[in-house]
């Protein structure tokens, strides 16, 4: 990680009809980093992203892309940015190639050879001269990424990039994003409402709720705190008795016990159970659901 931020968002607010919907969002992206933007629907992810890409003007706050202010140096800032906001909506009546040509013509610094490069990069060479209206959603998503990469951006912004993709497509997308960050030293901002997705893709994550970032941390830290262990043991009452002495426990619905995930202590607990004659049938770690995470971080405030 270098010290010059690729994207700097500071104290961003947006008021619509006298209602503050984004309340002072700040975060920073460094080169080569995949940053997750996590929040439930309606938390303000898309509004924030639209302000970053210049589609909505912020009420206050500054956004700098590659050191250029989006408001005062719009064209310079946009030169460092590639994005897909929500769905990759391209011109359905043009071919994939014509779509790319169309967007390439809008930036004189893009050489013709770049088109061939990005098409190969996203693996669309076979179908690139077909009309976009004949493309599957996965292909449109790839074409969307191709157009975002045309200008060799420093920052790539993807709003819900795996929305509507099948499992294979999701995995492919995830690997693709990681490769881009690693090999091209690109900073990627990915928004999602799925924790599992962010966890597999991102280095750091900001949790946004009701228009405010309530926590920014590395994915490891965030999950380590919240990860749970699920115990399946017999007899249950005895297991419960023993574990209760060691840590806080919750009872699961289907005859399981849930404790915090505390790596160094786990073997100890297990040993005690075994010594007391409890048969431990299953021990597995479980990621908290996004809802749990929110409840934990916000101290019990509900999502809506």
């Amino acid at each position: 990680m270098s010290d010059i931020p690729a994207l700097e968002v500071e104290n961003l607010t947006k008021k619509i009809k006298r209602k503050l919907i984004i309340k002072g969002v700040s975060f920073t992206l460094y080169p080569g980093e995949v940053f997750g933007f996590l929040g439930p629907n309606g938390a303000g992810k898309t509004t924030t992203i639209r302000m970053i890409v210049g589609l909505i003007s912020p009420t206050s706050g500054t956004i700098k892309i590659g050191g250029k202010n989006v408001r005062t140096e719009f064209t310079e800032a946009m030169r460092h940015l590639g994005c897909i906001v929500e769905n990759p909506e391209l011109y359905p009546y043009l071919t994939g190639w014509e779509n790319l040509e169309h967007f390439a013509k809008m930036d004189a610094s893009i050489p013709k050879s770049r088109l061939q490069e990005v098409v190969a990069l996203v693996g669309l060479s076979n179908r690139i001269h077909d009309r976009v209206s004949t493309y599957s959603l996965g292909m449109r998503q790839r074409l969307g990424i191709a157009q975002a990469l045309l200008g060799k951006p420093k920052v790539l912004i993807l709003d819900e990039p795996t929305n509507g993709l099948d499992p294979a497509g999701i995995r492919e997308m995830r690997e693709f994003i990681r490769t881009l960050a690693r090999e091209e030293n690109l900073s990627v901002l990915v928004s999602s409402h799925l924790l599992s997705e962010i966890q597999l893709m991102c280095d750091r994550v900001a949790i946004i709720l009701k228009g405010a970032v309530i926590r920014t941390d590395s994915v490891q830290n965030l999950l380590a705190e919240q990860e749970r262990v699920i115990w399946k043991a017999e007899p249950l009452s005895l297991a419960k008795e023993i574990l209760e002495k060691e840590t806080e426990i919750q009872e699961g619905l289907d005859g399981t016990l849930i404790t915090l995930y505390d790596e160094p202590l786990l073997p100890e607990w297990n040993e005690k159970l075994v010594q007391a004659g409890v048969k431990v049938k299953e021990m597995r770690t479980q990621l908290p659901s996004l809802e749990d995470l929110f409840l934990e971080v916000t101290g019990g405030e509900s999502i809506d």
Binding site: M78, C83, E89
Partner: peptide, 14 residues
Amino acid sequence: SGGTIKLLLTRPVK
């Protein structure tokens, strides 16, 4: 209505 305006206006063109 087609949503392409988002791609059109995030180019380095005023």
